[in-house]
Design a protein around this nucleic acid. Sequence first.
DNA 1: TTGAAAGCGCTAACAA
DNA 2: TTGTTAGCGCTTTCAA
Lengths: 336, 336
Amino acid sequence: MARVRLIDVAERAQVSMKTVSNVVNGYAHVQPDMRARVQAAIDELGYRPNLTARRLATGKTGMIALAMPEIDHPYFGEMASHLADIAMQRGYRVIIEQTLSDPEAEKAVLQDREAGLVDGVIFQPTRMATLDIARLHDDLPLVLLGEVDAPVTTDHVMIDNVAAARDGAAHLLALGRRRVAFLGLVDGDITMTNRRRLLGYQEALVGSGIRPDPALVLTTRGFESHDAETAITLALEGGVELDAILCRDDRFAAGALTAIRARGLRVPDDIAVIGWDDSAITGYTTPTLTSIAPDKRQLAANAFDLLHERMQGHHGPGRHVIVPHAVAVRASAPRA
Amino acid sequence: MARVRLIDVAERAQVSMKTVSNVVNGYAHVQPDMRARVQAAIDELGYRPNLTARRLATGKTGMIALAMPEIDHPYFGEMASHLADIAMQRGYRVIIEQTLSDPEAEKAVLQDREAGLVDGVIFQPTRMATLDIARLHDDLPLVLLGEVDAPVTTDHVMIDNVAAARDGAAHLLALGRRRVAFLGLVDGDITMTNRRRLLGYQEALVGSGIRPDPALVLTTRGFESHDAETAITLALEGGVELDAILCRDDRFAAGALTAIRARGLRVPDDIAVIGWDDSAITGYTTPTLTSIAPDKRQLAANAFDLLHERMQGHHGPGRHVIVPHAVAVRASAPRA
DNA sequence: TTGAAAGCGCTAACAA
DNA sequence: TTGTTAGCGCTTTCAA
């Protein structure tokens, strides 16, 4: 069952390849009867264009890469889902790249385009530094996700992490909490994102006339839920007094809930908890989790739009787009 | 900055394209000095092969599609993660297709290959019937995931759902439970998977001398966590007596936990709960969730292997591979 | 072992 | 409006 080619259709319809191509690509100026004849041949033969050949001829692959630390994470899963959806509607396919936060993998991502694999890349870096990105970036259409310290030349979509953290902390303060902890720093992880969230957290405290207490800035050993659990357990056992926790993501918040309950304390009565990402996790915990909610759909849509413009040949300095966020209020930190 | 092509390297190294190609592809019989000369030219010019051109020439894309209902689901996310990992190691890229359980989208999946997009497809169907799959299947290398009523001609990887459900129910019975509910049927959803799980559930009951009570086979309105919550709430309010629940997935189990707690009952003391998938959700709930654990890594590895053989030209009848499962015991249904 | 040249299937100038 | 033809960059016979 040899594949049907464009030229086979042309022969069958007694026309040139060009005409068939015009019909296939929906070119406007084709005589109706001609079009009908070609279409008939296409249908009879069951012709489907070979995308690889088209790509080689046009230089466009019709694919974009989505590179992120782990696809198996509620936040990234949601982002991937939105992006796959949006890209598909616009006629693009998405290939996934899981970097697992490995610096080598992150570098490899930026070289895919060179290999002619994809037309552009949407990338959430965790390990790569600004300079490396700028160096490897070249003329590859690229949009960065998340609050990285992005090169000025690169497009970039994020939420306002300072404001979001401020809003989260303010929500806790509005509940009358005065010993608000920030659970977000991971040993050896000094990302821009965290620095900005910490800043927002502090701003909120100061704004309420509270002096930030370094003992309330909690550090974990790793990125897993149980690392957060351990951190909270240690803090509680260590006599750190706290009545609220703002967490770097929902997984951490879930871990915090577990630790708090293990101490026989109640959420939110004794300690209110806010997560981050507004992922599906918020519905699985007890109590349900109040969470900082980035507008993920917007994030994905804006990232795609920026990338699309670049792929269309847009040049110019990097654009930085801020997407709205909200505090999704649930039981772990109810409305005041 | 025009791209460096094979021919540029050839000129630079004063050899033919063939020789450069041999070096690039690691062909054995190349004189060492020749190889060195070519390699030098490659490095100097920073040559990278154009994958699209290679594909057109070889007819292989080096990509596989992974098609599943939703990438944003803990189980599928994990599967995607494993598969991306395995495929990458074997030199393949994965493109994701989200069908959202839409019949049209499922059909489209099987036609990607025709378009020369991918060399093969790993597909977890939910809507498509055996016959449709067989019809569209053609000679497309295809491996099915999950216990579908697969065409005999198609490869297929799954766990033994009858045995897994039996094991889950048996675990609950071993805890002394006698009113074990099955929360798995969704209105209008009559998948093979569920039928087989229901069968295993009944076998376990009968094996313990218990007569299955139809009132304990619970139906939900949809696939979300809150649908499960509603179902359990209704059952409890309706006076259905139960002391254990076997759920179709962890999300349902999470919903069940919520409903049980809302009634003021305790897990596992009053009602033990078992989920399915052994996803990350199991760690976020209170109490943590005992769950049927398919060997997801094996599932992915076997699926890839079967697909790889097909892509290498293997023909022959469909192979059905059973992958091990276990009961991952946690607090919601502890060991007896 | 290496070279020359013919495709792979399509698009896009350029002609007609 | 439609036809002709030269690429796109690589692999792969077939010769040398």
